[in-house]
Design a protein around this nucleic acid. Structure first.
Lengths: 68, 68
DNA sequence: TCCAAATGTAAAGTTTACTTGTCAAAAAGA
DNA sequence: TCTTTTTGACAAGTAAACTTTACATTTGGA
């Protein structure tokens, strides 16, 4: 699964720390998700999408490999 | 966070076990999510939405309380 | 009514998301 | 260039998702 958090942050001029605060997680959590180090809960994914006013699918997208 | 998995399953005439198999988790996992016992990963949420051909937000919706 | 399929639930164990703390490196600005 | 902000990364600990096994209850069809 890949994501476009970094791009969305740039569009909205938000730092990792600022986004983290908005969705109530630590900065490291945002950083780790952004890098693909781990997969967010759906709750967090929904919050992030809501902050950016887009659908979850616009930020997080499945890859063929995810269906294995 | 609430969800409409049960309704979507009914629409598509899928049992919990059948859905579980399609998204590669155990039946109990589907059951627990459906009952609100726990929150799925975004990966699983995306897969479930994909199976039902809808957006994640159509199945999983945030409640005010989730922003606390 | 009887049987089978589907669902709810629970316990114990594993894996992984997430936290807090810390530090180094990169980027940005004065 | 010097300083501050931002980001990447890592380690140890906690919380929660998910697994497997197992059993009781509900539902639906013959």
């Amino acid at each position: 699964m890949k994501n476009t958090i970094k791009v969305e942050r740039a569009k909205h001029d938000l730092t990792q720390a600022a986004l983290a605060e908005k969705v109530n997680v630590s900065r490291q959590t945002i950083n780790s998700i952004e890098i693909g180090k781990f997969i967010p809960s759906s709750l967090l994914a929904l919050k992030i999408a809501a902050i950016f006013n887009v659908a979850v699918e616009d930020i997080f997208t499945l890859e063929k490999d995810d269906w294995k």
